[in-house]
Amino acid sequence: MIVEGTVLRGPEYTPVEGRVIVEDGRITAIEEERVESDRIVAPAFVNAHTHIGDSIAKEAGRGLTLEELVAPPDGLKHRLLRESGRDEMVAAVRRSIRFMHAGGVTAFLDFREGGAEGVRVLREAVEGLPVDAFAMGRDELAALEVGDGYGASGAADADFAREREAAREAGKPFGIHAGENRTDDIVPALDLEPDYLVHMVNASEEHLDRVEREEIPVVVCPRANLVTDVGLPPIEDLVERTTVALGTDNVMLNSPSMFREMEFAAKLTTLDAPEVLAMATRAGARLMGLDAGTIEEGREARLLVLDGDSDNLSGVRDPVRAVVRRAGTADVRGVVHPAQHN
């Protein structure tokens, strides 16, 4: 397979004209030379935090607080999940996965409600689609056994020491929400030595220093934080200290669009476009253990191909900035997943 255009090459996403050669699902060469193509070739996105089961309740719960919306076990989303039939759930989740793929996502990490059965729902929903769904099982240890890791709701909800140890013994990652709408759950979450944290909206300088010292990655979801009125994460401070990935969080509250999440994060902060693109690509890939996130020889071929001559992107002078702040699903002309070319 050959993909031509302006290639955002390497860890700095340097725009170069040329072609990407793909063989057996891997990038075997990047040839820099003049080509007759208006395409922009970027790394495909990794959505580092979703609650995709919420696909059965989009835009429900207007005016409710965060606790009323999502707190287990009786928040609105959990009541709606319990009331939903399995077939309805699978169909709704599958449609959200298709939407993500159309928007350049080839992998995502989902905090999977519903225990082991919830993991099986996700497996069924993604079957046959060119997207890798990483299930962070929750609600019971059986979900860890069949899932890819364990995703804890938060240290204020329960003592997750048993789940943490089980994840460690299984060699699977343990992630946990922390500091979303409070501060008292951050230290207990850190004490669990998680593989990554989600949110950290209300983190203090002391918390941030500890994150840096212990090299704990953080996933931020600024659009969801804005909607639930809990504040906004200190993205720039986090980027200075650790690996920061980008997620879209609850499908109930936001479309799972990485284009929208990147644009919001970019315009909310003073971060350069390559820094934001890294949050949407290689940072999430690292959490999933994928050899992807940048366009380099030898890496997995996970590529996003955009029409640089679309009405939206025609005339763009800075293609990296355009991908981060301007592009959208309508500009996508192709999404490459390794399994499609093995």
Score class of each variant (00 low, 15 high):
1 M>W: 06
4 E>H: 04
5 G>H: 05
7 V>E: 02
10 G>Q: 00
24 D>C: 04
28 T>P: 03
30 I>V: 15
34 R>T: 13
37 S>E: 06
44 A>H: 07
51 H>P: 11
53 G>H: 14
54 D>H: 05
68 E>W: 03
76 L>Q: 08
76 L>T: 10
79 R>Y: 02
80 L>S: 15
82 R>Q: 12
83 E>H: 10
84 S>M: 13
85 G>S: 13
96 S>M: 10
107 A>K: 02
108 F>W: 15
109 L>R: 12
114 G>P: 14
124 E>P: 02
128 G>S: 08
130 P>L: 07
137 G>P: 00
147 G>R: 00
155 A>M: 05
159 D>V: 11
163 E>K: 00
164 R>L: 02
168 R>F: 06
169 E>D: 14
174 F>G: 01
184 D>T: 12
196 Y>P: 04
199 H>F: 11
203 A>K: 01
205 E>P: 07
209 D>E: 15
215 E>D: 15
219 V>M: 09
227 V>H: 09
228 T>W: 07
231 G>T: 13
237 D>T: 03
241 R>G: 05
242 T>P: 06
245 A>Q: 14
257 S>R: 01
258 M>N: 11
261 E>M: 07
262 M>L: 12
263 E>P: 00
268 L>S: 08
280 A>N: 03
281 T>W: 09
286 R>H: 12
293 G>K: 01
295 I>G: 04
306 L>V: 07
314 S>K: 15
319 P>F: 06
327 A>L: 03
331 D>V: 03
335 V>C: 04
339 A>Q: 09
340 Q>M: 14
